[in-house]
Write a protein that binds this DNA or RNA. Structure first.
Lengths: 271, 271
DNA sequence: CTCGCTTGATACCTATGCGGTATAGTCTGA
DNA sequence: TCAGACTATACCGCATAGGTATCAAGCGAG
């Protein structure tokens, strides 16, 4: 697949007519037909219904059209932004972060940075804690914010703060009735959802080892790839999930209760 | 610019070495060098610093690398999703919406739809009210949710509800002190921000004509392209802005107060 | 129903440009 | 300073995009 094919397809989808689309693209009609055929063959799906006039998009074609529009816009925007960046000799600060920091202090930090250094371009790259160490080493990022201690002598770590952990509970679960803090052993014999699945060690391991320390055995443990998915499963009543307090802002259709355990915290680590 | 060039650049950026990258791409090294040169020439900016070994990315190159990764991922994902859609013969419901409905009832509607019809693929397309009429006619969308009455005999309109309007006020503005409803003439001699700039008629016209009806003359009126920008300017203390009540969820760093006027409402229209 | 017009597909040719090979030039580290 | 690793340049062959001519299939007017 090729950007050219996307451009061609967008023109045809917009004009609903190969001949007019070809004129707009400043090419002859037969090459256009062929490129669209190749695109359909590559995807393995018919995008256009040619047996009617004006021609129609299939459902797949309609979806592909919307996506193609956005991809092309994104490419163009990237080109312009990169050019601007290169020409202006502005500095770029590249910040790696794990998703949960998006709902904590990171947006404020970024806003303040931009306010204080308007000439600085701040770029945000979502990376898991373990990936940040490597990204830092090869200068993909300049600084990272994670939740897991990944020991590496080449990397300096600063603990910004310890954040309380809370329990995410489906709306109609018995535990969602009360409001006060819950002891950790509430989780015994409950279905638990943890994240991320990989790479290890991860926030999932922190939670599981905290439970193991306290001798608490959940009924079933399901691993998912990320925080958003975990909370989605909680909302779908699959089980409970332990998350940093700041993640409460993410969804309001589930209940959260504090955890009554001194060690139920998660560090926010700058590397 | 070309997807191939993005793939090549990603390989070089990752390997920090043309020769190894070329091996991974299963091509010889000279063509790779040339493609990267052409890419740099096309963008007009140097992406790599070749005078050091291992080679380094410029700031622009670092930015372009992150963007290229995301674009390539998006393209691949689109291809798979389109294929799945075409193969499975699933139905797609394409919903057009104006951004303000994202903070009102639309997410709930979509969630219910997905719950009730799991076999249905719901696609969301952001379009201004005026664009929705056209999108509906050529089947780009199946249904639209907007805020402006665009009279067109070919299109059926259903008013879902009338939503109250509220006034968005910067945090340190004198009006942000109180909490109760404000009369419309509070806006007299105040700087006002309205959106969207085009196409007309838009929500901006609804607000402006409401003010004109009441004989209220703002000091200065600034038009911006969209709701998010408008609220951004409010936060930056450029002026006040009238928004639907549901948009209050968007930003918490500014104040909102009800408007004490029976007609200070905005319809939510399904077309 | 038919004729003519519009429009997309097919066949074949041309030419742009991608990738390959050979080689020169340059930087790094011992 | 020299060997080795690495990128740029020059040039060639071929794959493929685009062009031209033409066919086939719908659609509308009469």
């Amino acid at each position: 697949m090729d950007l050219r094919q996307l451009r061609y397809f967008v023109a045809v989808a917009r004009e609903r007519n190969f001949t007019r689309a070809a004129e707009l693209l400043h090419i002859a009609q037969p090459p256009l037909s062929r490129q669209i055929q190749q695109l359909e063959e590559d995807i393995g799906v018919q995008l256009l219904v040619r047996t009617s006039r004006p021609l129609k998009l299939t459902d797949a074609g309609r979806y592909f059209y919307e996506q193609a529009l956005q991809i092309l816009g994104r490419v163009e925007q990237t080109k312009l932004a990169t050019r601007r960046l290169g020409k202006s000799e502005r500095s770029v600060l590249s910040i790696g972060f794990v998703s949960s920091t998006l709902y904590g202090g990171l947006p404020l930090v970024v806003r303040r940075l931009r306010q204080r250094y308007p000439e600085l371009d701040v770029q945000l790259v979502e990376l898991l804690s373990a990936q940040q160490t490597e990204a830092l080493k090869n200068r993909r990022i300049d600084v990272g914010f994670g939740r897991i201690r990944v020991p590496d002598p080449a990397v300096e770590r600063v603990i910004m703060r310890e954040e309380r952990l809370v329990l995410a509970i489906p709306g109609n679960h018995p535990l969602s009735e009360g409001e006060g803090p819950l002891p950790l052993d509430t989780l015994a014999q409950q279905n638990l959802i943890v994240y991320p699945k990989e790479p290890r060690p991860s926030f999932a391991d922190s939670v599981l080892s905290l439970l193991a320390d306290r001798g608490v055995r959940p009924a079933e443990v399901q691993e998912v790839r990320e925080l958003q998915t975990a909370l989605g499963l909680v909302a779908a009543e699959v089980g409970l999930c332990v998350v940093p307090a700041s993640a409460q802002a993410l969804r309001h259709d589930i209940h959260y209760r504090d955890i009554d355990d001194e060690d139920a915290t998660s560090p926010l680590i700058m590397i």
